[in-house]
């Protein structure tokens, strides 16, 4: 019996890398395994972990959401250095609605998601015309400014913040809410970016002049992308508010800006799955490094530099390529 090696994607890919022709369950498995992996993995993890690590899983998911939100902006050609703006705005909105008006989390989280997105979009629309690093500069500045405003005006509890907020009904509810949100965003955004609308966003990143030349108002599309991204960030913030039962100036801290970028860069930009993978690597790592205190951010910084220089494509792209290159033995027909 003669055998030879053959790539497992042989005969599946049609013409280009993103068109597939499937004609058996095994070939279907080839495509569905990597997609089912995060779903099953998250569900299993939610059961298997101790209470402490469940909390870590929570913050992994939150940072993964922020990283996804960063990624969609990056894919539209906007490099944000201020994800904390989205996170903080959502967090404060949820806190305010809960504290001052007594609304339960079921109401505050969706409302904070929507209006947080709207508000952040409002903040950034005036600078939307800026390209490249000019946009980055402004996004870096805005959250730091907002902290100062809160400090100066002493609104919303000033430096003390607002504490004693309502928790979510149960620990399981917390966990599954955020896991559901993460999976929905991950798959939803992947779908969105391969739709025609998503292609326009990618086009803006590649060559905005050429998109303009198609009669498309790029600012309107950038605004939409901004709204989508900031809503996701605001959701993460609103959710965390009801986990910490507190909201204060730390929600605008640099951690919430830098860790998501680090996650997206380490994982690989442009796939969303990379962002999630990056968050799954970096957040637990930072838990383990917790003893190091301030050194954690130093590590993020070093990670950022190492990955941008050494593996600019990120881990996910690397794994993806290797996966498609996996070979199996097949019998040679006589």
């Amino acid at each position: 019996m003669k055998r030879r090696r053959e790539r497992i994607d042989r005969g599946i890919k049609a013409r280009s890398g993103d068109l597939f022709a499937l004609c058996s369950w095994r070939e279907m498995l080839y495509l569905s395994t990597p997609r089912l992996l995060p779903i099953i993995g998250l569900l299993v993890l939610s059961f298997a972990l101790s209470v402490y690590w469940q909390r870590v899983l929570l913050s992994v998911s939150v940072f993964a959401l922020l990283a996804i939100s960063w990624d969609i902006l990056a894919q539209t050609g906007m490099i944000s250095l201020g994800q904390a703006l989205f996170f903080g705005t959502g967090a404060y909105l949820a806190g305010i609605m809960n504290h001052y008006w007594g609304w339960p989390p079921v109401v505050t989280i969706p409302l904070a998601t929507f209006f947080g997105g709207l508000l952040c979009t409002g903040f950034l629309v005036p600078v939307l015309r800026l390209r490249g690093i000019y946009f980055s500069m402004v996004t870096l500045i805005i959250p730091l400014m907002l902290v100062r405003i809160i400090e100066a005006t002493r609104i919303f509890g000033g430096t003390e913040g607002i504490s004693g907020l309502a928790p979510l009904p149960s620990r399981w509810m917390e966990l599954y809410l955020v896991i559901a949100a993460l999976l929905a965003t991950l798959f939803g955004f992947r779908r969105l970016m391969s739709s025609d609308f998503g292609l326009v966003l990618k086009g803006i990143n590649d060559n905005d002049r050429s998109v303009m030349n198609a009669g498309i108002n790029i600012y309107w599309f950038k605004t939409q992308s901004l709204f989508i991204a900031s809503s996701v960030g605001a959701f993460a913030g609103a959710f965390m508010t009801h986990i910490y039962l507190f909201v204060g100036m730390p929600v605008f801290a640099l951690d919430y800006s830098i860790l998501p970028i680090a996650a997206a860069v380490v994982g690989g930009i442009g796939t969303f799955a990379g962002s999630v993978l990056g968050a799954f690597i970096l957040v637990p790592l930072s838990e383990i490094l917790r003893g190091l205190g301030g050194l954690r951010i130093v590590f993020y910084g070093v990670f950022l530099v190492l990955f941008t220089v050494a593996i600019p494509e990120g881990i996910f792209h690397y794994i993806q390529r290797k996966y498609h290159q996996v070979e199996r033995w097949v019998e040679v027909e006589k």
Binding site: I133, A262, V309
Partner: peptide, 20 residues
Amino acid sequence: LSEVIATFGIGLALLELFKY
């Protein structure tokens, strides 16, 4: 993108290291 992220990372690492 890489330039912004890398320089930002260097700056962050240095400043936080000084703080530490």
